[in-house]
Computed example of a mutant assay.
Amino acid sequence: MSNLTRFDPLSLDPVAELFQGFFRPMRSTLTTQDTELASMKIDMTETDGAYSVKAELPGVDKKDIDVQIDGSIVSINAKVERNKEEKEGERVIRRERYSGTFSRSFSLGVEVDEANAKAEYKDGVLSLSLPKKAPGDRKRLTVS
């Protein structure tokens, strides 16, 4: 038995799939100075008492990493500087390594205990240990 699919002549899905990536190869041949935006890959795990975050930051110096915690929102900012030294007689054919700043922010389910949070950077991986803040006593309001 064959599978039938319904055709919708007004749908833009086939058109979007047709042009996806169509201009990408042309863009990289237009100029050699074009660079892709850097992305920060993260892994996050949770236990009853803490969150653990590992972020890949290859080529970043430890002094150029900034981690900010505001309640349950964590922001990681990093700056990468690449040496753009060119020797006489050389011309750049292609430059793909990213140089600049990039950041990533995410919200956690529970506020983080900022005083006990720890960060370690080793071999291009930033490891964050973010203990959960103990839930405070809830204040009960009486309805009048």
Rank of each mutant, 00 (worst) to 15 (best):
T142K: 15
G136I: 06
D48G: 11
R94E: 07
N77L: 08
Q33R: 14
R27W: 08
S107Y: 05
R138W: 02
T32L: 05
M40G: 02
G59C: 01
D43T: 12
E90V: 03
K139M: 12
V53F: 06
A50H: 01
E120D: 13
D64I: 00
K54E: 09
A38W: 04
K133I: 10
E85I: 09
E120T: 08
D61K: 05
A16P: 00
R27P: 01
K41E: 08
V60D: 00
Y98D: 02
T29Q: 06
R94K: 14
S127V: 04
T5H: 07
F106T: 05
K139R: 15
A117E: 10
K132M: 09
K41A: 10
G136Q: 14
L128E: 02
S28D: 14
S28N: 06
G59I: 00
V110H: 11
S72R: 06
T35G: 00
T47F: 11
A55G: 01
N3P: 02
V112P: 03
S72D: 10
P14N: 12
L10I: 09
T101D: 03
A117R: 01
E120V: 09
E90S: 13
G49E: 04
A117V: 10
A38F: 02
D70Y: 05
T47I: 02
S105E: 13
V80H: 00
P131E: 08
I73D: 12
S99F: 06
P131R: 08
A134S: 11
N77Q: 14
A38L: 11
R82M: 05
S28W: 14
N116Q: 13
L37R: 08
T29I: 09
K87S: 10
S72F: 00
M1W: 06
P131K: 01
F22W: 06
R27S: 13
V112D: 00
L130G: 05
T101K: 10
L18I: 10
